[in-house]
Design a protein around this nucleic acid. Sequence first.
DNA 1: CGAGGAGTTGAGGCTAGTCAAGGCCCGTGG
DNA 2: CCACGGGCCTTGACTAGCCTCAACTCCTCG
Lengths: 247, 247
Amino acid sequence: MSEILHVMGAPADEATAADLFNAPLRRVRRGQVLFHEGAPAEAIYVVRFGGFKTLRVAADGYEQVLAFSAPGDVIGFDALAAGKHPTMSVALEDSGVHALPLGGLDALRQRLRAFDHALQIAISRQLARTADVAELMAAVAAEVRLARFLVQLSARMAERGLSARRLRLTMSRRDIASYMGVAHETVSRSLGALIGMGCVEVHNRDIEILDPARLRECASCTRGASDEGSTHAPRLHVASAGVPAAE
Amino acid sequence: MSEILHVMGAPADEATAADLFNAPLRRVRRGQVLFHEGAPAEAIYVVRFGGFKTLRVAADGYEQVLAFSAPGDVIGFDALAAGKHPTMSVALEDSGVHALPLGGLDALRQRLRAFDHALQIAISRQLARTADVAELMAAVAAEVRLARFLVQLSARMAERGLSARRLRLTMSRRDIASYMGVAHETVSRSLGALIGMGCVEVHNRDIEILDPARLRECASCTRGASDEGSTHAPRLHVASAGVPAAE
DNA sequence: CGAGGAGTTGAGGCTAGTCAAGGCCCGTGG
DNA sequence: CCACGGGCCTTGACTAGCCTCAACTCCTCG
């Protein structure tokens, strides 16, 4: 359990007590399903190593990827509300997770305050990522979406102390396309565009960010960005809905 | 506090004890900001009545709406992770919220188990809504997006015991457009298309769902949908440009 | 070494964004 | 109470970018 706390980013102070609760490591091989859509909620999962994609399958078979999870992330918490999983999760590579049965979750949270805190933080972080998803799928050019995706990925790598410049994509282009809300051919083409701009270098699923600044600039553009100087025209009719608080 | 539990959907069993913690009702007028983007995380908010939009403002001024909140929803939980709000919230109408200071949140959760449960459920529900957002912004026709938006809105109305057929939109078309990831003109046009299909009737911000089944069918289509027959043969590839006069 | 999926690239049609103009609703002030 | 103004909403024309279909190559894995 102390390992769970550690991977979740919590101080391992209460580690000794933590070990009283032993959640075994469950291995999930690449392509294997962690839980199916509609399955009864039995546990939440803390990713120890590897990675997962969480998705929903539409009636017509279309796969909508909702999130990619990395070590330290919590998966399956969204099943609490309805009692069953609204989504399914699949391992993108050989992975390991700690399954925390819902039955004992409350007791665990009450007795292990450090774990409770770590869980709240993890969930909060996940909630904040909704903004990232929306940012990605917002009405902007496809290259911009891809640039944002890479920036986000890079940032999350950095968070975990890994290289922010060298990314290894564990997911397929199709997964990325679904996540970004575009056709998978568009991902290829957009990647080509970023390569042409000198932002990145791509070898299969290995991506190297050559020019982080330019990539970020491209990601921040609301419109199609093939700008090469530093001349970005920020003019835009700001929807002035928000009214400053006045009392 | 018993009122907070009630609006969150929890049993008010512990209501008596709950009243020991009194969170005053804070009124927020239409257009007023509940909290700004980047503001330090000081509390989470439970909507008592009214409604809010949560959004993020890009560097160029573009407003990306991330969520609409109704009574019973929790706002601001995503600020826990970073210690400051990654988003801002604005009241869509005259509203009332209970502010629960973060300082006392832990103690509150520990002493009031019912509240703790309700909070976890509310957060879980909110997480599950990420899927709804993605579903909305997925790569599908604009009419389908709008249909999905209305279906979701209708479902959420029904959850709270209100009419699922008559919707009063508290947000502007621009807000909806941002939320769906399309231009605001497209919302108008899509609304016109749904009217032409006989799905809905619109008077300003009042929407009546005339044919829920057809609306749902339209919402489930991955492509443009203008099916009119009784047997729902999954027709792909429909030219929905000018909806024929039909009747 | 072969098969099949993954990825890339090309051509064309159509949706939706953009720019533009006008009508409508609502809040404001006289 | 009414007139005014500014926003919201709608509609139209045009264009660009993305999706679709299709062919082909490359990598991976059995």
